[in-house]
Design a protein around this nucleic acid. Sequence first.
DNA 1: AAATAACCGAGACGGTACGTCCCGTCTTCGC
DNA 2: GCGAAGACGGGACGTACCGTCTCGGTTATTT
Lengths: 192, 192, 192, 192
Amino acid sequence: MARESTRSKVHAAVLSLAHESGLGAVTMEGIAARAGVSKQTLYRSWDSTGSILFDALLARSVDAGGEVAVPDSGDLSNDLRALATGMIAELTDPAHERLLRAVTAELQADDGLADRFRELLLVPQQSAIVDRFRRADVAAPDDVAELFVAPIFHRWLLRSRPFCEAWVTAHVERIVRLAEHAATPGLPRREG
Amino acid sequence: MARESTRSKVHAAVLSLAHESGLGAVTMEGIAARAGVSKQTLYRSWDSTGSILFDALLARSVDAGGEVAVPDSGDLSNDLRALATGMIAELTDPAHERLLRAVTAELQADDGLADRFRELLLVPQQSAIVDRFRRADVAAPDDVAELFVAPIFHRWLLRSRPFCEAWVTAHVERIVRLAEHAATPGLPRREG
Amino acid sequence: MARESTRSKVHAAVLSLAHESGLGAVTMEGIAARAGVSKQTLYRSWDSTGSILFDALLARSVDAGGEVAVPDSGDLSNDLRALATGMIAELTDPAHERLLRAVTAELQADDGLADRFRELLLVPQQSAIVDRFRRADVAAPDDVAELFVAPIFHRWLLRSRPFCEAWVTAHVERIVRLAEHAATPGLPRREG
Amino acid sequence: MARESTRSKVHAAVLSLAHESGLGAVTMEGIAARAGVSKQTLYRSWDSTGSILFDALLARSVDAGGEVAVPDSGDLSNDLRALATGMIAELTDPAHERLLRAVTAELQADDGLADRFRELLLVPQQSAIVDRFRRADVAAPDDVAELFVAPIFHRWLLRSRPFCEAWVTAHVERIVRLAEHAATPGLPRREG
DNA sequence: AAATAACCGAGACGGTACGTCCCGTCTTCGC
DNA sequence: GCGAAGACGGGACGTACCGTCTCGGTTATTT
């Protein structure tokens, strides 16, 4: 398997290409040229630009300390607001956005990639959020977490409505209200 | 602009190609060949396969009676359940899914296409749903409608979790509960 | 089929490449680049570098007036000497040799090319020589012509022995002697 | 230099590849794989597929008893006919032809290979034939031997005319006639 | 017998060329 | 005079070999 130096050269190349020239400019030949690597070396380790892109994202995420840090201050509202703000910041960060959209686009056509994406990035991240709800004794924490996260992705993926501070506040408030009503009744809750 | 017969031949060609051979097989040359039309004719009316695909989807949607029929029986829960089931059925219909995913993927890279998509397909559909909530005197009907729709798209786009009947029921119940609490208080509601 | 200007650009390119850089440097990509032509254009009209090379040689030969000029002064010895000297000059001309060797090498591996080569270049040339012998009333002119030509090619192809003036003279003398003995007896011969 | 077992494995590999898959299929990588040898081992001992091919042919020829056996029954005509028939059989033997053509093709492009080929295979073989003519007291035995051999190679290399029994007979007869006239006059000849 | 070197298999690597597909433009020719 | 048919320059695809270059794991001495 690929030498470590090769992998990192390739990762750097694909990230810079995706960032500066957009999605369509990410080609196997372009990556090879930018990384100073032969095409065969790419094909030995990856089977598509999507794989490389995903691998690069994953490596970066691992380097960056790995798991998503879900804040847990005891105040659910504040924590969710911070979380939402962070997610939005990451999704709309000009340095990342094109890259993330590229991967999302590839997911639509490549089932294998979608599987890896789900298992390695989506599930861990979502689990962390679910745990935060569970710690707040929310019933059906999976579903509530999804309800919290989905509108953010929806707006981003379908560009249906722009993000704004007011909406984040209102959204968090709605989710918290829902969570309270869904909280297991009769049990002392760690937080109010 | 293209002759009507040309447009329909092209629409038929692109739909059949997308359906039978997958996303990658939709090329300008392929469409031209399948439609019995010259490439120049395609380029005169469209600028990418995404445009053609989108145009075809739009035409089909118009032919099919146009707007999404949001049920309005007076029973919000039943109506939402029917609506959700219908959306899920359309999104996962093997005859359409590849096509819809193809367009979604193109949206990530093509801002102009994303704009047209939002204005011509997304907004009308979403408005109809918002209207349904408004008719039920739900406060912030836009946000609630989004909260209703987003998890469905989220599951479909990121393939995060499969669809199942039980989830639909629970999801609708959660949305309705939220809507009730958000309903403008003090006004007689058409439904309970 | 290819535009005439394309053909001539390609011919010029392949001839110059073969001349200056040797046999191995003649590649489809190289020809395309040198000719300012796309690879697809080459593949539309030819299936190998050998075909292009052969086509170029043929075109050049046609442009140059076509058929081999076999001298016919009435003096068989002198004519044969001139013919042999001309053939040797052409085969060893530094401007052509690599090119001719390239084609000869390709003939060994490509039956179709060998057929075309034989029919379009070899047979006409050989026929002209046979005719010269026939006009001298030589019996079995085909075989004698072959006996005349073969050693020249043999030395060239297998590099068995170098060419020199003395050998040419001796060779021609031997062939003429053989031809005289083989001449149809009892008939007045045009030449002695 | 390579271990003897390696050499023979490589020879076997290259011969079988050339035989079964044709000239183009003989590659360094293919030979290494077939022989169960690393590429580096090949490059340590040879510099091209042509070298290996030639080396294999040479080894085979040495194994087979080495020199060409030129028949010497005392009857020049019969001996030459046998010799010609043998050469033609070898050249057109389906088991060898592709291989021999491959080497001949390589000779056109590789001067060093051509030198080795001439010295190690061609000269010894040709000398044996020259000796046969010399024993028959033929004058200029080199040239006559060449005249005898050249048409056979000519027909084979340029595929100019097919081999047939009648031609062999006529060819031998012509050569013998020429040889008689060229025989040193006034000396008793060992044969008539 | 253990130490030491030479050799070898395996195969990653930067490259070049292959032959194909599709891009978007431009030209030709028939209805 | 419009439009199909398709040639054209170009760029990327994925593959096959090239010749070079480490790697370990034998072999075969050499001590």
